[in-house]
Design a protein around this nucleic acid. Structure first.
Lengths: 99, 99
DNA sequence: CAAATAGTTGAGCAACTATTCAACTATTTA
DNA sequence: TAAATAGTTGAATAGTTGCTCAACTATTTG
């Protein structure tokens, strides 16, 4: 029973959650996924980075269970796995736009 | 008039906003400020870091207008300047705690 | 099976970050 | 005014991060 809601584990988890949204490339990836599933190839084209760079970022987001990937043939499709993160994203965006 | 709400400036602003919350030390600072104004000395004691480390972090948060500082004699008191960030913080915390 | 295509992985690197240390400023107190 | 106290600043540093490159795996197509 933790008396205080903010024990060391929670602190690092919380930092890690926000860290997932703390980089422009990841912001663009999540933004692209807001409307639904997107292929890795599309992301690569849209972001203008190498496949490798995108793949590395996707792995980080998948490790944090923020996205999910599905393989179909030789293509991989990416979608949001954590709707709470979408909520944070939208609120953050609201804040910087009309805030 | 930007057609898309996510132009490059918005992307980097949004990443920067979440970046403010992406580090354990800053999480602890903001958490400590949730109940109201706190002195820098108290923060130093509470965080177990040097005055310098805390001061550097406070400067970063102040530059982003997330906190405000007030000097009284030789003490400096810190408080939240951006309530939207409190909202993001609370939602993030809710998320990692229950769900 | 060979070639082409889609994506992943690990190494390496340049840029960035969080912290400490030492020196500094500002304020109070003896 | 000298000493003590509270905090800031800039340089140095250890560790992290985001990217590219080259090599790899997996799948499809000729």
């Amino acid at each position: 029973m933790s008396k205080n809601t903010v024990n060391p584990k929670n602190v690092s988890d919380l930092a890690s959650l926000f860290d997932a949204l703390s980089d422009p490339t990841r912001i663009l990836i999540i933004h692209a996924l807001l409307e639904g599933e997107v292929g890795v190839g599309e992301l690569v084209e849209h972001l203008g980075l190498t496949k490798s760079a995108v793949s590395h970022q996707l792995r980080g987001l998948r490790d944090k269970r923020i996205i999910r990937t599905r393989k179909q043939g030789r293509n991989v499709f990416v979608s949001i796995d954590d709707e709470h993160v979408v909520d944070l994203f939208q609120r953050g965006l609201d804040h910087i736009l009309h805030g």
